[in-house]
Design a protein around this nucleic acid. Structure first.
Lengths: 218, 218
DNA sequence: TAGATTGTTAATCGATTAACAATC
DNA sequence: TAGATTGTTAATCGATTAACAATC
């Protein structure tokens, strides 16, 4: 069922569905309805059915969705049914943290190379990966067939690293630096800059003793 | 100009505006038009003007926006014109990374307490913060008037930590664990789970030799 | 069969964009 | 004054939700 343009909002919900389904699978739940998923995720059941229906008919009327089957299907849609290799630049604390997460992940996305240009970092081991100098990035990316780059360097170095990733041929970049990166349209960028999450969170705090921009008009 | 319901999409763009404005300020640019911001951010200028106009009249017709003034205004809107204290639970690599970012931040959001319940972590120093046991969370939050909690523990401990934050009276939680947290409506949760970013990024990779869900129908 | 739940169309809602009068 | 750019209204576009026939 080849489909036209899937909206980004839909794509961003798929990993959330996957997460809940994985939890359910761990608890040996076999079948789930859009209703139940909706309650769990605070989403409209119609939306969930519609999201899934963009990609095929995965459910059974009167019954619901088979958890294992739906997991498999969503993994296919997200293309994580086969391993995807990832490189990371920036072997600081954040880089370490991501490599560790990695270890436990069952998502088929694996960090297989780590780079840093600080002499104190080069040669160091993170889990069982040796930190390589940036001069080896290009070759490693093509030899290992790495398709995604993660950037965990300071903001002022981020664009330079992005350029090298693009040059080396990655198809997507996950950027943790608080910088706006310019890359060709063919390369997809996702920003995971937590300072922005924190700032927008601050907006929703209740400024004490201050009416502020009211939201009681609906 | 008190306003009704501001959409989340608008709020999420404010920190991005702030980032670009800060960069411009650093480069001593004094004035900027919505046009210029639009080019820089790949956004429609009308959208930028509209976003800002929800909160007041910050620009000058025929001229544009004063960079310094607009920074000040957006900081007020986001409520980061005054310091906001933040506590973090989970003194692992990710926790460390966030504390470090913190050091350099000019955003008025400061991590002022770090907690962890692993004996190996308690008493340890991160920058100049001593890692405290969870038993001290509640008291610390109220004494220091901490309003935001950051969760950087493994998924299976996240809900428990969230409960303790809520109990202690925080108004917002930034959750890095790949878990869906249940909290009262009055507490705002933002999720910063990078595994979801990575999964949705995978969707946009070009599966080689595979037409897949086409997006050429528009 | 009766009850439940999907997949999908139509209705609604909300967000983005275009257009332009006001004005610096 | 002429040119530029805001703030805002109206038009468009897209996403969410409701409703329901199909069917397990």
């Amino acid at each position: 069922m080849k489909q036209a343009k899937i909206s980004e909002a839909v794509v961003r919900r798929l990993p959330i569905y996957l997460q809940v389904l994985n939890e359910m699978h761990a608890r040996e739940i076999q079948t789930v309805s859009s209703q139940e998923l909706g309650v769990k995720l605070d989403l409209n059941p119609a939306q969930i059915r519609k999201d899934l229906a963009y990609f095929g008919e995965f459910g059974r009327k009167g019954v619901g969705y088979d958890v294992v089957y739906l997991i498999e299907k969503i993994r296919q849609i997200l293309k994580v049914d086969q391993p995807i290799k990832v490189a990371l630049v920036g072997a600081g604390n954040l880089g370490h943290a991501l490599c560790n997460y990695n270890k436990y992940s069952k998502d088929n996305m694996q960090i297989t190379a780590v780079f840093d240009d600080h002499p104190s970092k080069i040669g160091m081991h993170i889990n069982n990966l040796k930190v390589l100098p940036m001069s080896e990035l290009s070759m490693t990316v093509s030899v290992q067939n790495i398709r995604i780059g993660i950037i965990t360097v300071p903001a002022f170095e981020a664009q330079n690293v992005a350029n090298q990733f693009v040059e080396a041929g990655v198809e997507g970049i996950l950027n943790f630096a608080p910088a706006i990166l310019r890359v060709p349209d063919a390369v997809r960028i996702h920003n995971a800059d937590f300072t922005k999450e924190l700032l927008s969170l601050a907006y929703y705090l209740n400024r004490e003793g201050d009416a502020q921009y009211e939201s009681d008009l609906d």
